[in-house]
Simulated scan of single mutants.
Amino acid sequence: MKYIKTICILLPFLSFLVGYSQNNKKTESTSYTIAYSSKETGDSEIYLTDSKAESKTRTTNRPGRDGYIAWSPDGKRITSYGYYDGGNTWSIHTMNSDGTNMKRLTHAKNKWDNSPTWSPDGKKIVFARDYQDSEEVWRAELWIMNSNGSEQAQIKPLNGGGPYFTQEGKLVFHSIFHSNSEEICIANIDGSNVTKLTNNKAKDLHPEVSADGKQIVFMSNRDGNHEIYVMNIDGANQKRLTNNDVDDWNPSWSPDGSKIIFQSSDENGEKHVYMMNNDGSSVEKFINNAFDAVWLKTRK
C-alpha cells in the first residue's frame, strides 16, 4: 500500500515534468519570423511571432513606445525606435532578436529618429529624422551610421523618410516634393542619382522591396485614404491591392513574396495585422492588437 500511495503522489509531478519538457522543446524549436508592436500590456512593446502567428514572445519592457522595427540581414538582431522625454525625443536602438543587449544609438534631443533600416551587409543603419528647426520649419532628413551607432552623418542631398535598402545597396524612400505630395524614390546611398518612381499629388509612403528585388510594396492615399499598392522596382505596373473604408498601413513582404502583411483598424478603431496574397486576394486577420509588423527576409 505504501508503494501505491507513493506512485499516486508522484504521478501528477511526473506528468508536470513531461508537460514542462514538451513546452520547453516547443519554445526552443519556434522559429520567429515576424516582429511587431502591440499595446497588449498597455504600453507599446515589441513582440516576435512565427509565420503562422501561433506562438509569440515579448522582447521589450520599457516605458515609452517601441516600434518601427527592422530585422538585420542575418536575422540575429533588430533595430527600432523608442520614445524618450515623454515622446518629445525618439531614438534608434539595436538589440538581439531575443531582446537582450539593447543599445540606444541616437540621442538627438527633441528630434524624432524613426524608420531604421539595415544595409545588405548589416554594417550600416539608415534612419529618418524629423523635427522643427529654430524657424519652426519642419525638416525631414535621412541619416546614416555604423550599426554600433558611430559615425552618424546626414545624407544631405535627400529628404523624406521610410528608407529601405535594395539588394544592390541603393535606398528606396519617400521624398517630399511639396506639402501634399510625397513620392517613392530610389537613390544611391550617398544621395546621388535620385529617380522618382511615383508621380501623384498624394502621399506615397513606406516602401519595402521584395526579397527577390523585383517589386516594391507601399501605401498611398492617392484614391482618398491610405491603401496598399505594389509596383515593379522601376516604378512600372502600379497596382492597388486593398480597398477599405479605413486606412491600411505599413505593408511587408513574406520571404517568398507570395504574401503581404499590413495593419488596419476595425470598427472600434483597434489596430490589427492582416495578411493577404500578393495580388490582394484572401485578406484575413493575422495578429490581434498589433501594428508595425515586419517579416524577416534573411539574406544568405
Rank of each mutant, 00 (worst) to 15 (best):
K201G: 02
I216L: 07
T242C: 09
R222T: 00
N232D: 15
A202S: 14
D248K: 04
H178Q: 00
K170L: 11
N237F: 14
T242Y: 10
G191L: 09
K259N: 10
I184N: 04
E183P: 02
H206I: 02
M219K: 06
I260P: 03
S220Q: 05
N243K: 12
N221M: 05
N243V: 01
E182M: 09
I176L: 14
P251H: 12
N188I: 08
G257E: 01
H174C: 08
N237S: 15
R222I: 00
H226R: 04
E227H: 08
S258G: 02
I260R: 08
D234A: 12
L197E: 06
D204H: 06
G191M: 11
P255S: 14
D190H: 13
K170I: 08
I189Q: 13
D204N: 11
G213D: 10
H174N: 14
D190K: 14
A202M: 08
K201D: 15
G257A: 02
I216P: 02
V230A: 10
K239H: 07
T198L: 12
G213T: 06
D247P: 00
L171N: 08
D223T: 09
Q215L: 04
K214V: 11
G224I: 10
K259M: 10
I176N: 11
G191F: 12
S252Q: 14
Q215G: 00
Q215W: 10
V230T: 13
V217P: 04
N244H: 09
I189A: 13
F173H: 05
S175W: 10
Q215E: 09
I184K: 06
A187Q: 07
N250K: 03
S179Q: 15
N243L: 09
A187N: 03
D204C: 05
S192T: 15
K259A: 01
V217W: 13
D212H: 13
F218A: 00
T198Y: 12
W249D: 03
P251G: 09
I184P: 01
N244F: 07
E182Q: 12
K201M: 14
G213V: 04
D212L: 12
S179V: 07
N200F: 15
A236C: 02
N250R: 05
P207H: 06
H174A: 06
A187M: 09
E227N: 10
K214G: 10
H226Y: 13
M219R: 07
P255N: 14
G224A: 05
E182S: 07
V194R: 15
N180F: 13
I233H: 08
S181L: 12
N244E: 07
D247I: 00
V172N: 01
I216R: 04
L241G: 01
S210G: 03
C185L: 09
H206N: 06
I186S: 10
N232R: 09
L205I: 06
N221K: 07
D245S: 11
A202F: 10
D223R: 05
K239A: 03
S254Q: 04
S181F: 11
E208Q: 10
E182L: 05
N188Q: 13
K239Q: 10
K201T: 13
G257L: 02
D245L: 08
D204W: 09
K203M: 01
D247V: 01
I184T: 05
N225M: 06
N225V: 06
P207V: 04
H174Q: 12
M219Y: 03
A211I: 02
G191V: 07
V217I: 15
K196C: 06
I233P: 04
N193K: 15
S252N: 14
S181I: 12
N232M: 08
